[in-house]
Simulated scan of single mutants.
Amino acid sequence: MINGIDYLRKMYPNRDEKDYQPSGLDLRLGKVFVLDSDENYSYGLYGGNKRIPNHVEKKEDYLKMLDLPNDKEEVYTGWFLDPNKPYICQVQEQIKIGENNAQFYLPRSTLLRAGINVYTALGDLGYNGHLSFLVINHGTKPFFIEKGERFAQLVDFSVRGGSESYDGDYQEEHNG
């Protein structure tokens, strides 16, 4: 069963009211990383190991726009996502999933309409940390996304039956 807005307000208090959706919670963009790979190294899943490229934080870009009605220049801080290049995008918020819950993550529809896809994985019971998603611009021109913009949505649901909490490599300590 999907946990709705009342549950999400209780689990994730002190959020911007715009983040609460009837069946989900919007997630905001906090950091963007590029994949830094060494061509002399084999990446993959083998021998019981995870070997992935380093994630190097992308420096913030600035977008200057002229507000035509009043000729005032607006400056936005965020990132340009180049076409056909993978980025790892991390949410601003630390997410703590309940012990009897799991989560799906979906891209916001505006991104899909612009040719941007957000690739996600299942959030397991008891996970705690800053979620990271693979984002690819399938368009032909760079796409700017402002820091703190809503870019994905979590859908929380109850899990029935005996389950164990997440105890994987990406677990963080809870910060509040």
Rank of each mutant, 00 (worst) to 15 (best):
M1S: 14
M1E: 09
I2Y: 02
N3F: 12
D6A: 14
K10P: 00
M11Y: 05
R15D: 02
R15L: 13
D16Y: 02
E17V: 15
P22E: 07
S23Q: 09
G24N: 02
L25F: 10
L27F: 01
L29W: 10
G30N: 06
K31R: 15
V32S: 08
L35Y: 14
D36N: 13
D38S: 11
D38Y: 08
Y41N: 09
G44S: 07
L45E: 12
R51C: 10
R51I: 15
I52D: 05
I52E: 08
I52Q: 07
P53I: 08
P53T: 04
P53D: 01
N54Q: 14
D61K: 09
L63H: 04
L66D: 11
L66P: 02
D67K: 08
P69S: 06
V75M: 05
T77D: 01
W79I: 07
F80T: 04
F80E: 10
D82M: 13
D82V: 06
K85Y: 09
K85F: 05
P86E: 04
I88N: 03
E93Y: 07
I97M: 11
N100F: 03
N101W: 02
Q103V: 14
L106R: 09
L106V: 13
S109Q: 00
L111A: 07
L111K: 04
I116L: 05
I116K: 01
Y119N: 10
Y119H: 11
L122E: 07
G123D: 06
L125M: 14
G129A: 01
L131S: 10
H138M: 12
T140D: 12
F143Y: 14
F144A: 00
E146Q: 15
E146P: 00
E149F: 09
R150W: 09
A152G: 08
S158I: 07
S158F: 05
R160K: 12
R160W: 01
S163Q: 08
E164K: 15
Y166K: 03
Y166W: 03
D167K: 13
G168L: 00
Q171P: 07
E172G: 08
